[in-house]
């Protein structure tokens, strides 16, 4: 049976961009509004999953940078741990965070926090793990089908 995915594929093309943009917003908003690294990573993963569903795994994989999702996940965990150890340099206990405000041109008064780096690690780990699970299983399916 030939499936007809025209509507799904067309919607996906547009929706993916919206979802990805939204995920960036969610990630950055996390400090003061609903959002954060965990949800940000998950939303990116769901966007890619949508692509997987609308097209097939191979096509999507070819369009993405050739990065192993497992490596991404491990890098995320490492980043989080190293950020935590960064506080040792200042003689503070593990995982102490700092924050401050800085006047930047164009952006104006902007707040910076080290917890953002930690959050990047969280996002990467969540994104990488979720996608590597889905990708492994669906790749497996392709082989079984043969």
């Amino acid at each position: 049976m030939k499936t007809n995915d025209v509507i799904l594929q067309t919607v996906t093309k547009v929706a993916t961009f919206i979802i990805l943009t939204f995920s960036v917003y969610l990630f950055l908003a996390g400090h003061h509004n609903p959002g954060g690294g965990f949800i940000g990573g998950l939303v990116v993963a769901s966007a890619i999953t949508l692509l997987f569903l609308a097209y097939d795994v191979k096509t999507v994989r070819a369009g993405l940078p050739p990065v192993d999702f497992k490596i991404l996940a491990i890098a995320g965990v490492l980043l989080a741990v190293i950020t935590g150890m960064g506080s040792f340099v200042f003689g503070k206990p593990f995982l102490s965070h700092a924050f401050g405000e800085l006047d930047l041109p164009f952006f104006g008064n902007t707040e910076f926090a080290t917890s953002v780096i930690f959050d990047v690690g969280v996002a990467l780990a969540v994104f990488g793990t979720a996608l590597s699970i889905i990708y492994t299983i669906s790749e497996d399916m392709c082989i079984w089908r043969r």
């Binding site: 996390g30 003061h32 959002g35 917890s115």
Partner: peptide, 12 residues
């Protein structure tokens, strides 16, 4: 923590 979002401040 300099964060208004309590959930995220707790998390990170």
């Amino acid at each position: 923590a300099g964060a208004k979002n309590i959930v995220n401040a707790i998390l990170v």
